[in-house]
């Protein structure tokens, strides 16, 4: 396993990474001296208590924030000291981000929500944009819902639209910050099923969760406490979301 890792391409590599929020009177050490790698094709779950720095790390991974100290290599390039515009370009070309609260544009169709990242890529023409968006919606099983507005979709469907949006630009990594945080068990499993399927297709995924049973769908778990990695485990028996869904009592009996 270990040897295999080293052959694989490093998508994310951080060294001595720290993030300090300077609140004037107090300095919050959100991340302290983090070093870790994420290889191509991995499905990593980041775990930890509230306030342990999971989101902070994911935001840095997602080029939404910059580290106070340390190095961050994304897809082989040093992105620790990029300016705003360069970061925007990184987000547009390399990153797919899924939020806990979906963050879909209201009164905008599912398809157009998925198209959004491509709008900020001038190399992609209109026709290609529509095609890509439609194909990605198909991947998450929402072809029939493409013209629906977010308020006409269930939470699970909205999160699937958000996943499609994160996928549409063919990112090198998909980052998800508590993607199942707002969903019930069944819908969470459905969303995880999509992640597993995507991962099987070779997409690298890193997600933050504090639900232990969600983390077991990932191949690798990283445990955080007070801004430090305290434990890293390779999941021995990765659960299959499809199977777990079948184990749940049938939907109508839930009531």
């Amino acid at each position: 396993m270990k040897e295999q890792d080293q052959e694989r391409k490093k998508i994310i590599s951080v060294k001595n990474l720290s993030k300090i929020y300077d609140m004037g009177a107090v300095k919050v050490h959100a991340l302290r001296d983090i070093g870790m790698d994420i290889h191509e094709g991995e499905f990593t779950a980041i775990m930890g208590h509230s306030g342990s720095g999971k989101s902070t790390l994911l935001n840095i991974f997602g080029c939404l924030d910059v580290p106070t100290e340390g190095k961050y290599y994304l897809d082989g390039a040093d992105v620790s000291h990029l300016n705003k515009n360069q970061l925007a370009r990184m987000r547009n070309r390399k990153i797919g981000f899924v939020f806990q609260t979906y963050n879909l544009l209201p009164r905008t169709s599912a398809l157009e929500n998925v198209e959004l990242p491509l709008l900020y890529n001038p190399e992609i023409r209109r026709k290609e944009r529509k095609e890509k968006a439609m194909n990605t919606l198909e991947l998450v099983g929402l072809t029939d819902w493409s013209e629906h507005f977010p308020n006409q979709l269930s939470g699970g469907q909205q999160q699937r639209v958000a996943i499609a949006r994160a996928l549409v630009n063919d990112p090198v990594i998909m980052l998800a910050d508590e993607p199942t945080g707002n969903l019930d068990t069944r819908t969470s499993f459905e969303v995880m099923e999509i992640f597993q399927e995507l991962n099987r297709k070779g997409i690298t995924i890193a997600l933050v969760t504090h639900e232990a049973d969600i983390s077991k769908f990932a191949t690798r778990n990283i445990l955080f406490r007070d801004g430090r990695i305290i434990k890293e485990i390779m999941v021995e028996r990765v659960k299959n979301a499809r199977e777990e869904l079948n184990k749940l009592p049938p939907e109508d009996e839930d009531i």
């Binding site: 925007a88 070309r93 544009l105 959004l116």
Partner: peptide
């Protein structure tokens, strides 16, 4: 915020 997150520049 979202537009920026998916790649919109200022």
């Amino acid at each position: 915020g979202l537009r920026m997150a998916v790649g919109a520049r200022g």
